[in-house]
């Protein structure tokens, strides 16, 4: 029985399984289509991004076919030909067989062959100061992750492993603060930071995390509680200091929970939008997320570079997912259920 633990009671009847497989494949196509559209758009030539009336969506990026002299090959009324150029009114002269024809751009089609246009990526990199933005994002991510690991694990240790009076009250207080929406503290904090002259620097994005985040304190506390208390008692008898027990016993045993904390904090900071939006004012300080949004607000229809940059921001996250799949899924279920 243990082998099929977890299969639902609907049963392994063969017909149903195949039906389910069909539905799953169809749904997968729906879920993947936006990704496909993003990558496909990011590799299209500018002229192919906006569909012309009556054309179906184009999935495969293409490039114009030309003859040996570099003239575009066209199709006009079903007949192949060459585009000789266009006049001042925008009308093209086409060479169809031996005769020359005048045609408006909507009356003929330029022949296409598959071709990837990486220049969207190059354009986006140039226009956004990509390297600087990436450096800013990574700096904030790393600082926040390290700060969170240190402060949250120390606090969680205090709450889970040191029997002091008041720790239960502090724990419930910590949980209660999670109920408060960030909007409530937003403005007083902004007022403080602006008085300190921190607005426009990375400090408001990093400093608060050096003092612990309730959610991860909670997560780590639950994990620390699961480590046998005997270990701590034995360490104390051996004359180990409290910090020694923390550093040499609890931390090494808590790698999965610490990894989850680091991973989720990194993801959150990588994608965080609101805080950089409020506190970063100079484009030299922008993170990738905010730089992408600013770029979009200035170039609303530059969909090629926009999709290129969206792909670039998303890829590391997807790569991280595949590298850390187990930590990832365990982390979600740990935060979701065991809490």
């Amino acid at each position: 029985m243990a082998s099929d633990r977890g299969t639902s009671g609907i049963g392994p009847r063969k017909g149903e399984r195949w039906g389910a497989l069909l539905v799953l494949v169809a749904l997968s196509v729906l879920f993947l289509a936006p990704f496909g559209w993003m990558v496909s758009t990011s590799l299209k030539h500018e002229s192919r991004i906006f569909t012309r009336p009556g054309e179906p969506p184009q999935w495969i990026p293409t490039t114009e076919r030309t003859d040996e002299q570099g003239r575009p090959l066209v199709t006009w009324q079903g007949r192949p030909g060459v585009d000789l150029g266009r006049d001042a009114d925008g009308r093209h002269t086409l060479l169809i067989g031996d005769e020359q024809v005048q045609a408006w751009p909507e009356d003929f089609a330029v022949q296409q062959r598959m071709g990837l246009h990486w220049e969207n990526y190059a354009r986006a990199f140039e226009m956004m100061d990509f390297v600087q933005n990436l450096r800013n994002t990574l700096f904030i991510c790393v600082a926040v992750v390290l700060g969170t690991l240190a402060s949250c694990s120390l606090t969680a240790y205090s709450l889970a492993r040191i029997p002091w009076r008041g720790r239960t009250a502090l724990f419930f207080f910590c949980i209660a603060t999670m109920m408060v929406p960030y909007q409530v503290t937003l403005i007083p904090l902004f007022a403080v930071y602006s008085r300190l002259g921190w607005v426009g620097t990375f400090l408001p994005l990093i400093v608060p995390y050096l003092f612990g985040t309730p959610f991860y304190i909670f997560l780590l506390r639950q994990f620390f509680l699961g480590i046998p208390q005997d270990l701590s008692a034995a360490a104390r008898i051996d004359g180990c200091s409290e910090f020694g027990a923390f550093a040499h016993i609890i931390v090494p045993l808590s790698k999965p929970a610490l990894a989850t904390t680091a991973l989720f904090m990194f993801l959150f900071q990588w994608a965080d939008f609101l805080n950089p939006l409020i506190y970063l004012q100079d484009d030299r300080h922008y993170t990738l997320a905010i730089a992408l949004q600013q770029f979009q607000s200035q170039h609303e229809s530059a969909w090629g570079p926009l999709m290129a940059m969206s792909t670039v921001i998303t890829l590391p996250i997807i790569a991280l997912f595949f590298l850390t799949q187990r930590t990832f899924i365990q982390g979600i279920t740990m935060t979701g259920l065991k809490g």
Binding site: T155, Y157, F211
Partner: peptide
């Protein structure tokens, strides 16, 4: 000793909670 250690380990959080939660809540 436990009380002292407990407070010491939770010190960053206690400072943080005062500065980034309690004070802003009151001001808000």
């Amino acid at each position: 000793r436990h009380l002292r250690n407990g407070l010491l380990f939770a010190l960053p959080y206690l400072i943080g909670v005062a500065a980034f939660v309690v004070y802003p809540l009151v001001m808000s």
